[in-house]
Nucleic acid binder design. Structure first.
Length: 461
RNA sequence: GUGGGUGUAGCUCAGCUGGUAGAGCACCGCGUUGUGGUCGCGGUGGCCGCGGGUUCAAGUCCCGUCACUCACCCCA
């Protein structure tokens, strides 16, 4: 008559303790690096008025609305309609941040640098690397009136510093510029740049021939123009190299917006020349095929993938938005990058490639001889904790073999024994070595003090 | 939203043309009465996703439903 075990909710991932150790470590690194670069932490509420979220997007079907149960009951079949400004869970952190900037503009100093690490919700069909509830880590720089272009080269550097401190696969960040692409299309005489972008954007999953066909047949682009679009989209640059500028000019299209975009993209690529060092763990390259990102991006766009995990799509992306925050008197342009914490981590955790050395912070388990002497064990534990050693006392005075097994199952490296005479011994259960120790002076080796996170190619045990 | 696949023990799965629900791992105990891991022996644990139908008989066949999953769409 045991209750049926609950099934997981698809797209709402929950981690085991060992996996959570990995995620917490990543979050710690994110906070540390973001703060090293002078970004201030901000947290916004989980909900926004639906009108705020829908202002820019066609992702309305992905947004979760939030209503009181009583309201649901009252509405019944009538369905109040989407005209009401109901609350909805935010689907990203950029739009709420723009709202936050407008609301607090008088109290913020510009340019304002903020980071924000929170969950977001999207009502999509989940699959690997794609969730309905997931965590993002955003960094943005927003200024009042105008935003200096060098920030567009600064943000990839911030993310490069993040990845340099994490045991993850190499990352390639592709950069493009929407003004460049739109200008190019306009220079070709195409009147619906957005439709062309949508088709060209499928290049990574399709073939040039098929994309060309749908441009000609579907969008109504001329054959010569379709060829030019593909020629542009297949241009990629090497890290730090701006040869693509000449190559684009060589395509013979002339347009003012194109020139502006080219200059901006060249500046970003040149500005990130030194990013990631030369170990190729993080590279920034121009790639004239990527145009994605949400609708509000106006210039530079970024999209980063993990080598060997390209099928996951972008794990870190963003761009420049000129008009997301506008109160009618002042416009606050910004540039930001968003790291998909959940998308990056879960596929690696599920493959056993990223692991924590233990699923609990405990470094020392203090054994209990019998319940009458539990106080002596607690005293030793207190002495250890007072000096920063994560310690727990055994849950029961079982045979010592069982108490050691308790520690072994959790990979707790040390078991502490309080002797009859009040002295103590500590056993390293990996080596079996047991030595006399004093709880007021003993410390574990630094590498054992906290769980460690590491990359491993070994198959999961 | 569209199209495929799969639902059996906590986990991974087997279960043939319908005929008494299985294995490995995990967990518990004993060998080993106060120092774990290896090994041996034993044991706990199943609304076979749910509902209906066919049949003497359904984990197995049919219908429905729900869930999970993959691809598309889109995106972190």
């Amino acid at each position: 008559m045991a209750a049926r075990t609950p099934r997981p909710l698809s797209g709402f991932p929950e981690l085991l303790p060992g996996e959570r150790v990995v995620e917490e470590h990543v979050l710690d690194v994110l906070r540390e690096v973001f703060e090293l670069h002078g970004f201030a932490g901000v947290e916004t509420r989980a909900v926004e008025p639906l009108s705020v979220l829908l202002r820019k997007g066609e992702i309305d079907k992905e947004v979760y609305a939030v209503r009181r149960l009583a309201e649901v009951a009252e509405d019944g079949a009538t369905d109040g309609g989407a005209t009401d400004d109901v609350l909805a869970l935010h689907y990203d952190l950029t739009v709420p941040f723009a709202r936050y900037v407008l609301e607090n503009a008088g109290k913020l100093s510009f340019p304002f640098r903020r980071y924000q690490i929170q969950k977001v919700w999207r009502g999509e069909r989940p699959q690997e690397g794609r969730f309905r509830e997931f965590r993002q880590a955003d960094v943005d720089v927003v200024d009042a009136g105008s935003l200096a272009p060098h920030h567009e080269a600064e943000l990839p550097q911030v993310m490069a510093d993040v990845f340099a401190r994490l045991p993850l696969p190499p990352v390639v960040m592709q950069v493009n510029n929407r003004r460049l692409v739109e200008g190019f299309y306009r220079g070709l005489g195409l009147d619906d740049p957005a439709a062309v972008m949508r088709e060209v954007d499928k290049l990574d999953k399709s073939t040039p021939a098929r994309v060309r066909a749908s441009l000609v047949d579907g969008v109504g682009v001329g054959e010569r123009e379709a060829d030019a679009c593909l020629a542009l989209a297949t241009l990629t640059g090497a890290p730090g190299r701006t040869d693509f500028v000449e190559q684009v000019r060589g395509l013979g299209v002339r347009d003012e917006l194109l020139d502006q975009g080219l200059d901006e993209l060249a500046a970003v690529v040149a500005g990130t020349r030194a990013v990631g060092g030369d170990d190729e763990r993080f590279r920034v390259v121009a790639d004239l095929s990527i145009t994605r990102g949400l609708d509000y991006y106006t210039g530079t766009v970024y999209e980063a993938r993990m080598t060997g995990f390209e099928h996951l799509g972008s794990v870190c992306s963003g761009g420049r938005y000129d008009a997301l925050a506008d109160d009618g008197r002042t416009t606050y342009p910004g540039v930001g990058l968003s790291l998909g914490v959940t998308r990056t981590l879960l596929p690696l955790l599920q493959r056993g490639l990223l692991r924590a050395s233990r699923p609990t912070p405990t470094a020392v388990l203090v054994a209990v001889t019998d319940e009458e002497h539990r106080a002596a064990s607690s005293a030793a534990a207190s002495a250890l904790r007072a000096r920063g050693v994560a310690t727990e006392v055994a849950p029961s005075a079982a045979r010592f073999g069982k108490q050691i097994r308790f520690a072994d199952r959790r990979s707790i490296p040390f078991v502490w024994f309080v002797q009859e005479d009040g002295t103590s011994e500590v056993k390293d259960i990996r080596s079996g070595e047991q030595v006399v120790a004093d709880p007021t002076t003993w410390l574990p080796p630094a590498e054992d003090a906290r769980p460690r996170v590491s990359w491993t190619d070994e198959p999961t045990a």
